[in-house]
Amino acid sequence: MAGPPPSIPRRLLAGLGVLWRVLRSNPLSLFGFVLIVVIGVVALLVVVDPPLLVPYGPQQLTGAYLQGPSSKHWFGTDANSFDIYSNVMLALPLDLGIGVLVAGTALLAGGSLGLLAGFFDAPRTVGGAASVVILRVTDVFLSFPSLILALALTRVLGLGVGPTVLAIGLTWWPFYVRLVRGEVLAVKNLPYVVAARASGVSEWRILGRHVLRNILEPVVVYFTLDIGTVLVTYSTIGFVGVASKYPGPQPEWGAMLAFYQSSGAINAYPWEVLAPGAAIFVTVFAFSLLGDGLRDILDPRTRRAFVRSTTGHEPPSEVPAATLPSGTVPSVGVSPDRGATT
């Protein structure tokens, strides 16, 4: 380790190595990562080249009515002879896109507002006044259940995919304001922030390097779980019937569920309902597992612990006391207290 520091590609590789070891140590989160990658690739393929994975069009008559799952129709067909597997697959990019877009926008917008409201909240300053305004507006939004508010907004904004996404987006950001502000308040007066300030680190750099980095873990974990919640909310609104029309040119899981459930034949033809339901479940589940995995990676404490437990390799930290040069102050032997200290 006495040589020059490793070059950037080597540092990247080393980082990927750590990532791999952390993932391998927790099979469930590894499964989540793989699932997310598979879902992402499939969604991309459906958009780029539908015939590759989708055998039939959304409203293509196959001639097979109410057939159960078979090698030809994986998830069966419905009373219109539409292929359910094709419709579930065609809905994937839309549902996934909505989940990531709404949660992502909420994270960026609500997160930035929360960051500013939490960090610049000294009373009797411009920032303090701004943070009061941000928080009161947030409270107004939070006082409504978001599903009800989104439904009400769709009455104003109109029916269809676009307005519904907008409606959910408008109700979604306040959670992030609260979450991020709370985390910032907990971190911003810790001694290491004051120490950074004392050594001349600028306020914006403190915000990014010391505050943001240390609240990242809960926020990112919440975000990945939230993608699933957005999906469920959109599907619920779709279920009520204001978002997407099914059957139609662009299928959507919630609308599919609503349509087949209302046909009243769940007992006779359960595959109609099971297929879109399972699609929602698997996607939400994958994001939950991803959230768990990300938490392990973002927190240096668990990261190290995991790497150790899987590789049996101790990070080099024990310094033999015998190496002390005589005559000097006995150095505190590095006795790492590795337990979860917080």
Partner: peptide
């Protein structure tokens, strides 16, 4: 020591 995180130190 350079490469350690604070929680690994006494």
């Amino acid at each position: 020591i350079l490469r350690l995180f604070p929680h690994e130190l006494s």
